[in-house]
Design a protein around this nucleic acid. Structure first.
Lengths: 121, 121
DNA sequence: TCCGTGTATAGATAGATGTCAAATTAGATG
DNA sequence: CATCTAATTTGACATCTATCTATACACGGA
């Protein structure tokens, strides 16, 4: 079994209603918090940005390690955190591993911050 | 000078272009990370949710402390973190303090997760 | 099959963070 | 002014996290 695909997909059940919506439960808040924890790091934010803006929507890990003054294991750790948050997914093709963002995850988050009545005053 | 208004407004300069957009700089990533750090806690997420969904878009701190099994200083600490991230603002009216979300902050975050071309394939 | 290279995991450590108890500030009221 | 309540600040402590080095795994090529 490829360890690259170990996704606990924390984001699956969390979130969908906007923050301005009905009161969320403790469990939902806990799962959502894991997703934001994954984004709460400058390196990981830049990783998501690099991956999302990469050619074809994907980027090789070998290109990511060079973009930071960090060791490969550290980058690998950050990628794992993002993966377990359900934000990205990785695929091995031969020697290299490529990462993509999971569009649904971003869309879900976008909806979270939607506001109810900006049209009315 | 009211200490309630000490907002370092970290979110002001950070973000606007979507994550899928052009590559962000280290500085921008660092400031954005502070905002997500503020959201990366179940209690703070529920606080934002409660405040945003409160009547008139605002909630008294006295109503927030009762909603958690945490001491008042802890709630106050979390509110401060959210305030310094530019996500909420507080106002004292007589004996009580009321908090509101800052709509622009949420809107900005919503745009961050926008995807480029979901219409095409 | 044996190296060489690209990624990931394990273990260790310094620094950040959530929580509480105690003390402080701000406003209302007698 | 004295005092009560609401909210914040301060200081301490246990836990979590970002990073490193060292090691292990996966694949391709000789």
């Amino acid at each position: 079994m490829s360890k690259l695909l170990d996704v606990e997909d924390v984001s699956a059940s969390a979130c969908c209603a906007p923050l301005s919506g009905p009161v969320m439960g403790e469990e939902e808040a806990a799962e959502l918090a894991k997703v934001f924890k994954a984004l709460a790091d400058p390196v990981r934010l830049r990783l998501v940005n690099l991956i999302a803006s990469g050619p074809g929507g994907e980027v090789c890990v070998c290109d990511l390690t060079g973009a930071f003054e960090l060791t490969a294991p550290t980058i690998s750790h950050h990628l794992k955190v993002l993966r377990q948050a359900g934000l990205i997914e990785g695929e091995r093709r031969g020697t290299w591993v490529y990462y993509r963002v999971i569009p649904e995850a971003l869309t879900r988050l976008s909806g979270l911050f939607a506001l109810p009545a900006l049209t009315s005053a």
